[in-house]
Amino acid sequence: MKKLLVLFFVLGLFSTANAQFGVRAGLNSANFTDFESDPRAGFHVGAYFRKDLGLISIEPGLQYSQKGHERVGATGSPAVKNERLNYVDLPVLLRVNFLPFLNVFAGPQGSVLVSRKLEYVDGSTETTTEPIKGYDIAGVVGVGAKLPLGLNAQVSYDIGLQSANYYNQDVKNNVLKLSIGYDF
Score class of each variant (00 low, 15 high):
150 G>M: 13
5 L>T: 12
168 N>S: 14
126 E>S: 12
90 L>T: 08
170 D>P: 06
58 I>D: 01
25 A>Y: 06
65 S>V: 13
146 K>R: 07
12 G>V: 07
74 A>L: 11
96 V>S: 04
120 Y>C: 04
159 I>S: 11
43 F>E: 01
44 H>P: 06
48 Y>F: 15
145 A>L: 12
143 V>P: 03
176 L>G: 04
166 Y>S: 02
34 D>I: 06
53 L>G: 08
50 R>S: 12
69 H>S: 06
71 R>K: 09
2 K>D: 08
50 R>V: 11
42 G>E: 00
165 N>K: 15
108 P>D: 00
175 V>E: 00
181 G>L: 07
77 S>K: 10
181 G>S: 12
78 P>L: 09
173 N>L: 11
152 N>S: 14
164 A>P: 04
58 I>G: 10
106 A>L: 13
165 N>W: 13
22 G>F: 08
62 L>M: 08
81 K>Y: 13
31 N>F: 07
151 L>T: 04
101 F>P: 07
68 G>I: 03
102 L>P: 06
37 S>D: 00
131 P>R: 05
18 N>F: 08
79 A>N: 01
12 G>W: 08
78 P>A: 10
171 V>T: 15
75 T>L: 12
86 N>E: 07
87 Y>P: 06
28 N>I: 05
63 Q>C: 08
170 D>A: 06
105 F>H: 12
93 L>Y: 09
88 V>E: 00
46 G>T: 02
99 L>H: 11
23 V>R: 04
43 F>L: 11
104 V>W: 09
20 Q>P: 03
109 Q>A: 10
180 I>K: 01
118 L>R: 12
43 F>T: 07
52 D>L: 10
184 F>N: 13
44 H>M: 12
125 T>R: 03
130 E>F: 06
145 A>R: 06
18 N>V: 02
65 S>D: 00
